[in-house]
Design a protein around this nucleic acid. Structure first.
Lengths: 133, 133
DNA sequence: GAAGTAGTACGGCGATCGTCAAACTACACT
DNA sequence: AGTGTAGTTTGACGATCGCCGTACTACTTC
C-alpha cells in the first residue's frame, strides 16, 4: 500500500536530470551473480515486495516510494542485500537513490527464473487472500 | 515436540518390499506451501544439491545415497527443512527414509518455478565449472 | 551558509541458521 | 538374543539475519 504519487514525471525534469555522482555503489558483475544469493534475497517478504514493485512499475524507483513497514535503516539494509546479490541496480541521482531490476542480467543468467518467481508470488497472493500490510 | 512412544505394529509386515510403517512424518498440505519458504529452502547449497539429485534421478531416494559433506544430523536437518516447506515428500520404508520431489504440488502452485530454478542451477554449474580461471 | 531531504553507518538485540557430536530409536539380518 | 545399518533427537556453538534507534553524510534548495 504504497502512496502512489508517481514522482517520475519525465518531461518535467528532463532538461536537468540529476546524474550519478559522488558516492559509488558496488554491484556484482553479471558473471558473479550467484543463484543461491538471489534465492535467498527473494526469500524475504520485504525484499520480494520491493522486487515485485520494481517489476510492476518497470522503471527506476527511489527507495522512499516503497514505504516498507520497517525503519529507514532496515530499508537500506534490504536494498543493499538486493544490490549486493545482483537483483537490483542502484544509482544516486541527486539526493535520491534509484533502484531498478537487473532484468537483463538475471534473464541472461537464469532464463525464466525471475518471471516464474514473480508469477508464483502473484499467484500465491491471489490464493492467500491478496491483501497484506 | 511430540513424545511419540507408541511402537504400534498394526498388521503383518510385507516380507519383500518394506512399506511405510511406524513413524509418521508431517507434510504441509499443498495449499500450505509458501513461496518464501521454498525459496529459502532452495537458497542453501546442500538442499539445492539434494533437490537437483532428486530431479535427475526422478525417483524415491534414501537419504544415505546423497552422501552430503556434512554430518548425519545436519543431513537430517536439511531433509526436514525440505519436507516441512513442502519441497519433498518423505516416507519410511523399512530402515530407509525415502525422499521424492513434490513436483506435482510445486508445479501446480508455482508453474515453471522448479524448472527454471533447476535449469538455473545447472546453467550456473556449467558457468562456474567451465570458466573458473 | 542554513535548513531540509534522502539515505548510510554503527552499534546492539533477539531470533534463526548451519553445523557438529553424542546418545538414542527403529528396523533388518544373523 | 545380538549386531549392524539408517536415521533422529538434543543441546550446543558461532555466524548471520531482520530489526531498531541514533548519529552521520551527501545533496538540494533557500
Amino acid at each position: 500500500m504504497q502512496t502512489q504519487t508517481t514522482p517520475t514525471a519525465p518531461q518535467s525534469r528532463a532538461p536537468s536530470q540529476p546524474q550519478a555522482s559522488g558516492r559509488s555503489l558496488e554491484h556484482p558483475r553479471r558473471e558473479a551473480i550467484r543463484l543461491e544469493d538471489v534465492l535467498h534475497a527473494l526469500s524475504d517478504p520485504m525484499r520480494m515486495r520491493v522486487v515485485r514493485t520494481l517489476e510492476e512499475e518497470n522503471c527506476e524507483l527511489s527507495c522512499s516510494v516503497f514505504d516498507l513497514p520497517v525503519s529507514k535503516s532496515t530499508t537500506t539494509h534490504h536494498f543493499r542485500v538486493l544490490r549486493e546479490c545482483g537483483v537490483i541496480h542502484q544509482i544516486y541521482r541527486g539526493t535520491a537513490k534509484m533502484s531498478a531490476l537487473r532484468r537483463d542480467d538475471l534473464d541472461a543468467l537464469f532464463p525464466g527464473l525471475l518471471d516464474s518467481v514473480l508469477a508464483a508470488a502473484a499467484l500465491e497472493e491471489g490464493r492467500l487472500g491478496g491483501d497484506r500490510g
